[in-house]
Design a protein around this nucleic acid. Sequence first.
DNA 1: GCCGTTTTCGGCCCGACTGTTTTCAGTCG
Length: 578
Amino acid sequence: MRNAEIADALSELATLYELDGANRFRVLAYRDAARVIRDSPLPVAELAREGTATRLQGVGETLQQKIVALLDEGEIPSTTKLKRKYPATLVEVTRIPGVGAKTTRRLFEELGIATLDDLRDAADEQRIRTLKGLGAKVEENVLAQLDRLGDKGPGPRRLISEVLPIAEQLAATLRAHPASERVEIAGSARRGTETCKDIDLIATAKKPVELAAALAEHPLAAEAGNPGDAGARITTHNGIPVDLRIVEPGAFGNLLQHFTGSADHNVQLRELALKKGLSVSEHGITNTETGKVTKCKTEAQVYRRLGLPYVEPELREGTGEISAAREGELPELVELVDVRGDMHCHTTLSDGLNSLEEMVAAARARRYSYLAITDHSASHGFGNDVTPDALRRRIEDVHALDRKLRGFKVVAGSEVNIHPNGSLDYADDLLAELDWVIASVHTSFRISAKRMTDRFIAAMDHPSVDCIGHLTGRQILTREPYDVEVERIVEKALETGTMLEINGNPRRRDLSEHHARLAAEAGVRIVLNTDAHRVETLANMRFGVMTARRAWLSADQIANTGSWRSFSRLRKRVRSGG
DNA sequence: GCCGTTTTCGGCCCGACTGTTTTCAGTCG
């Protein structure tokens, strides 16, 4: 059973407990555990069977037993029991924004509302207002939320590549406005998460109302609330909610820190603060003894006041960064400027849109020192089928171009399919002629985790394979990762000296930050690649760097932050002419 | 239900907003 399914089961049970009026900290414990399990790079089902799932922060003996029961019986016994009391459909009702567990339970017990359809009928017939404490506004909200849900589901998350450029454009406009002083992007976009649901902007301004009005009148705004001196709220034409908050300069650091989050990071930070007699909020840091409030101009001051060094936004996920900060063990994170080359891109030879020469020129314009050309082996329908002869001619072309260039290395490579049996798409002698080989899976996704893992392991055992491409094949928001035993992959990568790629395509981000952290901690060499299919998408390197930073990686853990010479030395096979 | 450089028991973040209330509970981020 996948981590996501275990997490869903615990999360459902949390809601059932909540409906039942359980201690709210117990409910919180189930939700926390669900999140930790969902994000774990390890197979939690196996850990629970071995009795070692308790090493996950937030999972104790009780939850471990419930996971084992879930595996054995298909459902947690407490869930089965509670479902006799509350229909499972009530869990859906609690997902309506504005309707929580308490309200749902009353609607069920006093009006017999069990499903979303029941809820709509009751709101239509104005029966909700007959309950004490609930009125016409609640009915109005319920109907509005149900309509919205019918359209597209609740507040869709979007890829950061869709959201961040809009955030940057809005921030740039506001910065250029004469009324503005400081404008920063906050929220998940600043932390570099895979998806975002909205945009948070934090600003200080000489004339706050004018700056707020500038956002409300921005051409990207389809709807705007009333701009005031505290800020403004708009929705863009493509439906992204944007919140601008304007604050006095003296508390800019507090507000930026608060709205950058994450929620988990902030909770842990406040817990730490309380132990030091300090209470943290977006307005400042209060000494709980004296009541004295300290306001901070910068985030660094916020952290300093709590006795911590500055914590980079990408690390603020509540996954150990606060204790690392206390110990002075925060990593020095890799930056985009550290990246010296891109080892995965495509051209018109397979399914790319630009020529070899165009891709090289674009890489040089990015001030890289090297670029690997890695068209698909294409036995399975990626654009043109790159035959062995075509690949041989390509190798010659690449080498000829490389000889012409000074201070830049063009690398003759290929992204070779791994067949279901673990064999590769080209003959060994041809693979040996290549300077760089990425092995990837593009077909037969639905095989067992064991067979998929064996497939990768066979490829890593091949002497010509330098790197594994987009390990799990996931496409964020649209395709689940395929089942693969990441621990075994990591072990084999270490043993054979095979590198693992972080694919920077914003749809992939694969390795995920969780897998990348696991692999790098084990000592596997990581490569940041874009898998670009046109010159523009070489710029996706920024998303790869975001994943690397969220995986706590420093430049020295990433192979392509060094010169071509040093990169070359890190490959498992020493090649001629390298 | 989890967890421990102030605790193996007694804690477990903070504030804003909303709708319905005359002081607050529920919900949310």
